[in-house]
């Protein structure tokens, strides 16, 4: 190699290195924060790969959905991901903290979305639910029907687990105390705690991770649990004796959001628009066993496939829609009180 070519190679490398952030901004890649597991497999097959095929934009995954990172990214201007999916309460918080990019007429074609398709800067994608589930090794299926049964320690002794997060656990506590599902919101905190006091002796674990909850149920470490439906389905697929109760379950909608200030915002919205087209959403939801946000997606889903979907119209009577703004309003106070209550 001559000095000249060596110099040129180095020059190229240096230029590449220096220009890397700029290049990123121009757009070969899009970084998406992934939930991993089933979600990622379904998203890769039905959303990411087709998008890359169509636009040439490569999708890169950053794993571990972490709401705080969204805030950190916006604060530091150092972007690890451009797109994330958030649940309702987080979405509200993110909007209030100004962490998400607002969709505009330039970036999103609202005409293609359902009427409620945009909420607090998020674009609706799919729904998941938090259900009562039972390990049927010691309890016959169909025996435990609702949260009153879950709270009935005399009739059903045995350990239980609930989410550590108030947004899922409080509605259950109110239901167990006899609150009608229409009256859950706004949440009566005192009543929720009074109700929780009654079930507390049987709680073995306030779980924080879906996988953790799944293991607790599948291994029979708890008899019953409040758990995300996808984890029950996953346990069932693995042959665990578990029953998913499609009654008194809360439905959370998740939304695509774009990190505020990312240089790749336009591209990110392009992806989102692509991802929420009903047919594509249908395929993603079939594989991921999620409920499609856009009801038009059901046109591409047969009845058998809707069996495990929270937005299945057949389950509508037992479904409880979360009210993110209502939860968001009390989130901090309730979480802190919940923590203090747990250690007592």
């Amino acid at each position: 190699m001559t000095i000249l070519t060596a110099r040129r190679t180095l020059l190229g490398a240096t230029a590449g290195m220096l220009a890397a952030p700029a290049l990123k901004a121009q757009g070969r890649f899009l970084y998406i924060n992934s939930w991993g597991g089933t979600w990622e497999r379904a998203a890769r097959q039905h959303l990411f790969d087709p998008f890359t095929a169509k636009t040439g934009i490569e999708i890169r995954i950053t794993s571990g959905v972490n709401f705080a990172k969204l805030a950190a990214q916006v604060r530091t201007g150092n972007y690890e991901y451009d797109i994330s999916t958030l649940g309702g309460p987080s979405l509200v918080q993110a909007e209030q903290s100004n962490l998400t990019e607002r969709p505009t007429d330039q970036t999103i074609d609202r005409g293609k979305l359902p009427s409620d398709g945009i909420f607090a800067n998020g674009i609706g994608n799919h729904a998941y639910s938090t259900n009562l589930a039972v390990n049927t090794r010691n309890l016959p299926a169909g025996e435990v029907r609702d949260w009153r049964d879950f709270w009935n320690l005399q009739k059903y002794p045995g350990r239980r687990a609930l989410p550590r997060s108030m947004q899922w656990t409080f509605p259950f506590a109110l239901l167990a105390d006899g609150v009608a599902k229409e009256n859950i919101y706004p949440i009566d905190m005192d009543r929720a705690f009074r109700s929780l006091d009654k079930v507390k002796p049987a709680i073995a674990s306030w779980w924080t991770q879906g996988g953790q909850a799944q293991q607790l149920l599948a291994d029979g470490e708890v008899q019953m649990i409040g758990i995300w439906h996808a984890n029950v389905l996953s346990a069932k697929r693995n042959g665990a004796p578990v029953e998913l109760v499609w009654n008194q379950f809360t439905v959370d909608r998740t939304y695509w959001v774009v990190s505020r200030g990312t240089p790749r915002a336009a591209m990110a919205f392009e992806f989102i628009q692509f991802a929420v087209e009903p047919e594509r959403m249908a395929r993603f939801c079939i594989d991921g066993q999620y409920g499609p946000f856009d009801t038009r997606a059901f046109n591409w889903i047969n009845e058998e496939q809707t069996k495990d979907m929270p937005t299945n119209p057949a389950y509508a009577a037992g479904a409880i829609e979360h009210e993110p703004r209502s939860i968001g309003a009390i989130m901090t106070a309730a979480t802190r009180r919940f923590e203090a209550w747990q250690i007592q």
């Binding site: 709680i203 073995a204 306030w206 989130m331 901090t332 979480t335 250690i343």
Partner: peptide, 26 residues
Amino acid sequence: PALIGSPRDLMVASLIATQIEDLLAF
């Protein structure tokens, strides 16, 4: 502690994580 400990045992680190991840209370 969160995975195998008592439901009453909350560690400071866990508390801090909740403040950040759920509440954005930096």
